[in-house]
């Protein structure tokens, strides 16, 4: 098992009101799985992905990645874990606007301290895999939404992470492009063996997932294989 979530609770405080974003969630994520977190807005999908991705700390409960409890890491430890183990894909692509496609994909490798030759090889190879090898010198604002999300996928995968977390990766794309992006993620999942966990509330996208965890009001409503 790649990741294990045990009794995960996350509360937010809005003035005197406590918002229970996640309530005692427990499930596991297998290596190489293509898992979808499904639920309406406010069901806790993003919160769950943030906690699995060590972007936030849980109120209670634990997240284990590769057998290691990552729920209470220091900021530097969590950053290091994210860099080496987790790739992120965001709903609004979140590319660095001043960097071109090549540089955006290269960014995690620079943080990892990979040598220039290896970096170039990895970036070009990943750009080819996502079909962007002809756009390497283009800036994000010169690309379509689908192309930008491909760059984000390439950036998430270029460091060979064990786990890629995608928060509503198709929400800002039209239906057809959304399908293409999900297909690309699926292809990467099969080709590279990388585990994908993505959140969505798009019925058309859900059907691609091997397993679906349905959330409602911060609780697991059901799990479908």
């Amino acid at each position: 098992m790649l990741a294990k979530i045990e009794n995960l609770v996350k509360d937010y405080y809005l003035g005197k009101t406590t918002v229970h974003a996640l309530r005692e969630l427990s499930f596991g994520i297998e290596k190489g799985e293509f898992l979808s977190i499904v639920g309406p807005s406010g069901s806790g999908k993003t919160t769950l992905l943030n906690l699995i991705g060590c972007l936030d700390l849980p109120t209670k409960g634990d997240v284990f990645i590769n057998g290691k409890n990552v729920s209470h890491l220091s900021d530097n430890e969590a950053t290091n874990l994210r860099l080496k183990t987790i790739g992120f894909i965001f709903q609004s692509f979140n590319l660095i606007p001043v960097l071109n496609v090549y540089e955006n994909i290269e960014f995690p490798l620079l943080l990892l301290g990979i040598k220039a030759g290896q970096r170039k090889e990895a970036v070009v190879s990943m750009a080819q895999k996502v079909g962007l090898h002809e756009y390497l010198i283009h800036k994000p604002d010169e690309l379509s939404g689908g192309q930008r999300q491909r760059v984000a996928i390439a950036r998430a995968l270029v460091g060979n992470p064990l786990l890629v977390l995608a928060d509503e990766p198709t929400a800002n794309l039209d239906g057809e492009t959304g399908h293409i992006i999900i297909d690309l993620m699926l292809e990467m999942n099969r080709e590279l063996g990388t585990t994908f966990v993505f959140s969505t509330h798009d019925e058309m996208v859900i059907k691609h997932a091997q397993r679906k965890i349905f959330l409602h009001d911060g609780k697991i409503d059901r799990i479908e294989e």
Partner: peptide
């Protein structure tokens, strides 16, 4: 702000 969030999420340390 969002870009700072992104580079931090991707693995940029605070000191960086």
């Amino acid at each position: 702000t969002q870009e700072i969030g992104t580079i931090r999420a991707v693995g940029t340390r605070r000191d960086q």
